[in-house]
Amino acid sequence: MLKFRRKILQASAGLLLAGPLFSQRHALAQTPACDDSPTPRQIEGPYYTPQTPRRSNLIDGLPGQRLLLEGRVLSADCKPVANAIVDLWSCDSEGVYDNTGFKLRGHQVTDAQGKFRFETLVPGAYGNSSFRRTPHLHVKVQAPAAPLLTTQLYFPDEPLNQRDSFFNPALLVKLQQSGQQAKLASFDFVVPVQAKG
């Protein structure tokens, strides 16, 4: 019994020492500095569909490269905003929107840390020779005690970015990982939350 107790104490001491090392290795990236500039607004576009389903996987069996988009909704002073609705929609990899159902459409509610996460597809470009849109995601963010934010997100190194009159470099996602199977992207929305009182 004494030997067993000693082993448990040794194991516990090892966990206490390893704990700080483990948390440093797996710590999330620090929140970028926020200022009083909210995320820029952009047009809704003609393809918005209200009352999307609450879900994180928007793919519905469609072909294309998977995109994992995650991020947070933050106030201007970098505090997480819980219970914000993040509504996401986009075209498919061929540049076609589903205007009869909810493929590549859905919303999430942020958790206590202001986090959201979607699994969707990398959208394609669309348009014609005189007006062509660069690949982008449409987003609406409705945070408690804040006005509705409607905007679009863009991808770095897209050739059409510079030709698209709506493109705004402040709305570029950060690509953390790029592979043949999936891209991992992140974006934090900053919304002007009004103080309670």
Rank of each mutant, 00 (worst) to 15 (best):
L62E: 15
A82Y: 00
W89H: 07
D60F: 03
A27P: 00
T52L: 06
G95K: 04
A84L: 09
I8Y: 03
G64A: 02
L17F: 13
G45N: 04
G95I: 01
I43E: 11
L17E: 01
R55T: 07
S93L: 05
V73E: 08
L17S: 08
D77V: 05
Y47H: 15
D35C: 06
A13L: 15
P80Y: 02
E70D: 13
P46F: 11
R54P: 05
F22H: 03
L74M: 14
L2K: 10
D35W: 02
V73M: 10
H26R: 01
L16H: 01
D77Q: 12
A27G: 06
R54S: 10
W89D: 03
S93K: 10
A18I: 11
L69W: 10
D92T: 04
P53Q: 05
P32W: 02
N57V: 05
I8G: 02
A84V: 08
Q65D: 07
T31S: 12
Q42E: 15
I59S: 09
L21S: 11
L67M: 14
G14L: 15
L69R: 08
R41I: 05
G64K: 00
Q10C: 12
L2M: 04
Q51Y: 12
N57E: 13
G19R: 00
C34E: 05
P46T: 11
L74W: 10
R41K: 03
G71L: 11
C34W: 07
P20V: 07
N57Q: 04
K79F: 08
L74D: 08
L58S: 06
K3F: 12
V73I: 09
R41N: 05
S12H: 09
A13P: 03
R6A: 12
A11I: 10
P20K: 00
A11L: 13
K79A: 15
S93E: 14
Q65C: 05
L9T: 02
D77H: 09
E94S: 13
I85K: 14
D87L: 02
N57M: 02
L67F: 13
R72H: 12
L62P: 09
R5G: 03
R66E: 15
R6E: 09
N83V: 02
P50S: 04
L2W: 04
R6N: 10
L68E: 13
L58H: 03
I59E: 10
S56I: 05
A76P: 06
D60T: 04
Y47Q: 11
D60V: 01
C34M: 07
L58K: 01
S56P: 01
L62F: 03
S12F: 15
L28C: 04
G64E: 07
H26C: 01
K7V: 14
T31A: 11
K3A: 14
L67C: 06
Q42P: 04
A27Q: 13
Q10W: 14
S37G: 05
G71C: 09
T31V: 15
G71P: 10
Q51H: 14
G95S: 05
S12W: 15
E70N: 12
C34D: 05
L2D: 09
Q30K: 11
P40V: 00
C91L: 02
G61M: 01
T52P: 04
Q30M: 08
D36F: 13
R6V: 14
C91H: 00
L2P: 00
A13N: 03
A76H: 00
S37I: 11
S12I: 14
